[in-house]
């Protein structure tokens, strides 16, 4: 039996969950830069990644403030190890083909937009402020990823097949977004953030509509991987991602860049 967490500890964990999601997904999306199927998509994906990196600076910056140990967003991003990360597993899986990347983006954007909508009425004005600012960016991400999922799902035979494969592969990672734990309960009690489980109906309606238009079938399985939000068990992929991302900071500690 572990000791109950304090509100500040829970708040910090919540902020890490938000910031690590955007950090890791932004990193993954940035891997496409220079390698996309067409120039217009290359530029658009870079915009998405840039938004996510910017959002990371807000969330992790606030996390550092709440933690009160003088850490910057960079310290938090570049100097923690795998077990410290609180992102959902969905964002750390490798990009796969363009279809899987866009499907992952869509599945995340849909959750992200609903979550930020709720956070705009957070009792913490800093959280509400970040949500207000970032929700506009995310509304656009969702519009774009949804259009692409529809276009590719209902495109050629090959694009349809690849999008269905992407959905099948990613679906087991969706459930983690809606799991609630003691940290969430504390956030709900403080009026800071909604209960993740409470977003599910709206989410299902949203993605159900888009995926139907895309002529794609949601897998008939409620199984969900978990471990990212709690930090108990990430995928093997995260360590490799961090090895790249953190290399300079780790190899040359204390340098200014």
């Amino acid at each position: 039996m572990t000791a109950p967490i304090t509100r500040d500890q829970a708040f910090l964990q919540f902020l890490l969950r938000m910031g690590d999601n955007t950090l890791i997904l932004g990193h993954r999306v940035s891997e496409w830069c220079g390698h996309s199927p067409v120039l217009e998509e290359d530029i658009a994906l870079a915009n998405t990644a840039l938004d996510l990196i910017g959002q990371t600076r807000f969330w992790l910056g606030l996390a550092g403030e709440v933690e009160g140990e003088g850490k910057s967003a960079d310290d938090i991003a570049f100097l923690r190890d795998v077990w410290d990360f609180r992102n959902i597993l969905l964002v750390e899986v490798p990009n796969g083909d363009f279809g899987r990347t866009l499907m992952r983006q869509f599945l995340f954007d849909a959750w992200h937009s609903i979550q930020l909508g709720r956070l705009m009425t957070s009792s913490d004005s800093r959280v509400a402020g970040i949500a207000e600012k970032t929700s506009k960016e995310v509304a656009y991400h969702l519009e774009r990823s949804a259009d692409t999922v529809v276009g590719l799902g209902d495109g050629t035979e090959e694009s349809h097949r690849r999008m269905q494969e992407a959905l099948d592969y990613l679906w087991p990672y969706v459930g983690e977004m809606f799991q609630s734990d003691a940290i969430d309960a504390e956030m709900v009690a403080a009026g800071i953030a909604p209960d993740p489980a409470s977003l599910r109906d709206e989410y299902d309606a949203l993605i159900g509509r888009i995926l139907a238009t895309a002529t794609l079938t949601i897998p008939d399985s409620s199984f969900g991987h978990k471990g990212g939000r709690s930090g108990k068990m990430h995928t093997e992929h995260l360590g490799h991602l961090l090895t790249q991302m953190q290399w300079l900071q780790r190899a040359y500690p204390g340098a200014n860049w």
Binding site: S36, P37, V38, E41, D97, F98, G99, T148, G151, L152, G155, T156, E158, S159, H160, R162
Partner: peptide, 10 residues
């Protein structure tokens, strides 16, 4: 690698 994407969206 991008061909199926360009073709699919078109």
């Amino acid at each position: 690698d991008g061909k199926w994407v360009r073709d699919g969206l078109l």
